[in-house]
């Protein structure tokens, strides 16, 4: 089981002139619409409780206005909550004084922004160095680090350029390099790839996954794109109207949507590409079956189907990474899963 890196408890944010005064209505369960209409305050987040696991990609997903950007800004206290608490590695973020908070932001967290937020008057290398310079690190070290991370994100050779000379995708690589060079445990990405073209977005997602395999940071990734969430998220939290509706793995959310909203949200997903062998396998070995095919438990249903058909097997043995048998899938289950997936997508 993963350990908790960031723990959020009872987090509520009300925007307006007298947020504290609105808490009694919020606690009484007033809706976002009523609070706005009758009291002129906006309910940004309501009673969010969640644990974000260490070294995982935690995706926070929701449509615009769902409070996802507000939520991520509470983790490093760019926004002060109206009520609730946030702790990182057991340390209360809200109890920090200014100096402690600055240290925390410098050393524990790094952020990547939707519109890149680079310094237009500084060269690329200076932009990547920014976080370390703020930390007051030694010059040679900063340069080495910045060059290292620029190379890691595939941007060697542009260090003397200015941001306006680069394409959007390249600028966001700079943003990523700037965040990574800080060597912080927590990487916060606020719709980091949303402003990019689909192809470049896909490249950036692959880059992030590749980097994560090696770096194992705790990544909080905000997006409004479900496909993106399913592709990169170890776990996904779905926000709606400032409330947390569901938090779990892609499998859990697809198989057991918490409510109608989530169900409608995931309706268009091609399940066979997301559901994994381990989600549909059973413990009992099918009887009287001769020809078997072996697959890894983390293969998608799509791939399982392909393996079974191409090798002309009659059932599937599922193994874990260490080659131990963990379950079986027979033809009927597979057919049923694919059929259901088609049905749901069509609905």
């Amino acid at each position: 089981m993963s350990e908790t890196k960031i723990e959020i408890k009872g987090l509520t944010k009300v925007f307006g002139k007298n947020p504290k005064g609105m808490m009694k209505h919020v606690d009484a369960g007033i809706s976002k619409e009523d609070l706005l209409e009758h009291h002129g305050h906006v309910l940004g987040l309501h009673d969010i409780n969640m644990e974000l696991h260490t070294r995982k990609i935690e995706v926070v997903m929701g449509l615009s206005g769902s409070g996802k950007s507000t939520l991520i800004r509470h983790i490093n206290r760019l926004i002060e909550p109206t009520a609730g608490s946030i702790s990182v590695d057991g340390e209360e973020v809200l109890k920090m004084n200014d100096a402690q908070l600055r240290r925390f932001r410098q050393e524990k967290t790094a952020m990547v922004f939707q519109k890149f937020a680079l310094l237009p008057h500084r060269t690329i290398i200076d932009n990547v160095s920014f976080g370390l310079k703020v930390q007051g690190k030694e010059k040679g070290f900063i340069h080495d680090q910045a060059m290292h991370w620029l190379e890691r994100v595939g941007l060697k050779g542009v260090e003397k350029h200015y941001p306006s000379q680069l394409s959007g995708g390249m600028q966001q690589r700079v943003g990523l390099a700037r965040a990574l060079s800080c060597d912080a445990d927590i990487l916060m990405m606020d719709e980091a790839f949303s402003a990019l073209d689909p192809l470049i977005r896909s490249d950036m997602q692959d880059l992030l996954l590749e980097l994560q395999e090696e770096l194992h940071k705790t990544i909080v990734f905000i997006t409004h794109d479900l496909d993106e969430a399913l592709k990169i998220g170890d776990r996904i939290a779905i926000l709606n109207g400032g409330r947390l509706v569901q938090h779990g793995s892609a499998q859990e959310i697809l198989l057991n949507p918490a409510d109608d909203y989530v169900e409608r949200f995931v309706a268009d997903v091609n399940r066979t590409r997301v559901l994994l062998a381990k989600s549909i396998m059973v413990d009992d070995k099918p009887e009287d079956q001769a020809q078997s095919v072996t697959v890894n438990e983390d293969e998608t249903v799509d791939n399982v189907l392909h393996a079974l058909l191409s090798e002309d097997g009659s059932y599937v043995i599922v193994e874990d990474d260490k080659g131990r048998k963990v379950g079986y899938i027979d033809k009927e289950t597979l057919a049923e899963t694919v059929f259901q997936a088609e049905q749901k997508s069509a609905a």
Binding site: L78, R103, T109, F113, A117, L118, L119, P120, G131
Partner: peptide
Amino acid sequence: VDAEVVEAANAFGCTAWQKLTNVQMPL
């Protein structure tokens, strides 16, 4: 000055002075 750039300065833990000299004044 672009609010997101100022936010970035805050997110990287700038002091008020660092923010002024590195971000706000130049921009």
